[in-house]
């Protein structure tokens, strides 16, 4: 385990010196702040409408009810945007994990020191999750701003338990994207190829629900169930639900297993 941690630490240290990491951080900050401001404006408008309506919130359509508080009206909206940005950003963060080791010939170093393949996989993966956590923590600034400057009819401006649960879900989602990316990065020496294929796999998997209506049962239910989109909707509701948790953990375990097999198999070529 010490070796896995050493590898994870090295991965993070190397990562934070690459321009890619900072491009992704900046992209995350820029795009999410754009949507943050947009949802704040919407929030303000709806609040305005509610104030002028004679019966207040009771009169407004159900769509508007989410805007009664900052947690549902702003933060959860923002989370669904961050989720999509993560889908786009993760391939760029995961592409170099193993591809770069092969290109630089440092892979020989990893494989000839007394390190088990499982330690290499776990170390790389821990590093990858660390990078996703860094990327996501850039957006922590928005809930912090809201909790300082915002106010609510009852209690604190934000329901922090919901916000933190949302972040947990985002990290789990990011970790899933990175597991897919790690495996694909183990197949090629080219970072670009790794990024493109990772993105193709993630987005197809995300949207696979769309083809479900066109096929017969039981394939339809299976496809609908397997779709990231379905599982994410369960995950992002802000309630603790075990089912998506198990789903994403299984996907991660599956891809780590594939990475392990791929590293072992590549030695035989």
């Amino acid at each position: 385990m010490r070796k896995a941690l050493a590898l994870a630490k090295k991965e993070l240290a190397v990562y934070l010196t690459t321009p890619w990491a900072w491009v992704v951080f900046t992209g995350m900050a820029f795009i999410s702040s754009f949507f943050f401001i947009a949802s704040l404006l919407t929030f303000k408008q709806v609040q305005e409408v509610a104030r002028q309506a004679p019966n207040g919130w009771a009169q407004l359509p159900p769509d508007y009810q989410a805007f009664r508080n900052l947690t549902d009206g702003v933060v959860l909206n923002l989370f669904s945007v961050i989720l999509v940005i993560t889908l786009f950003a993760a391939p760029f963060l995961s592409m170099r994990l193993l591809a770069e080791e092969r290109r630089q010939k440092t892979f020989e170093l990893l494989m000839t020191t007394p390190t088990r393949t499982i330690d290499i996989v776990l170390g790389k993966y821990l590093g990858a999750v660390g990078i996703v956590v860094c990327t996501l923590s850039v957006t922590l600034v928005f809930p912090v701003i809201l909790s300082i400057l915002g106010s609510s009819e009852s209690g604190t401006a934000l329901e922090w338990s919901t916000v933190l649960l949302g972040y947990f879900a985002l990290v789990l989602w990011g970790a899933t994207c990175m597991a897919i990316g790690l495996f694909i990065s183990s197949l090629t020496e080219s970072q670009m190829v790794a990024a493109v294929i990772t993105f193709a796999v993630s987005i197809t998997w995300m949207l696979i629900r769309a083809v479900a209506p066109g096929v017969d049962e039981p394939a339809r239910s299976v496809l609908a169930y397997l779709s990231f989109d379905t599982q994410l909707q369960n995950l992002m509701k802000g309630v603790l639900d075990l089912k998506p948790l198990i789903f994403f953990s299984s996907v991660i375990a599956f891809f780590l297993f594939l990475t392990h097999r791929s590293i072992e198999a590549r030695r035989w070529v």
Binding site: T17, K105, E108, L109, P114
Partner: peptide, 27 residues
């Protein structure tokens, strides 16, 4: 102890950081 054809270095690390990393891998 193995030195491959191309020295397996990480360009982003300092020599000290690199040697520390390899020492940890070697246990």
């Amino acid at each position: 102890g193995y030195l491959p054809e191309t020295p397996p270095l990480y360009p982003e690390l300092t020599v000290r950081g690199y040697l520390k990393f390899v020492a940890e891998l070697k246990g």
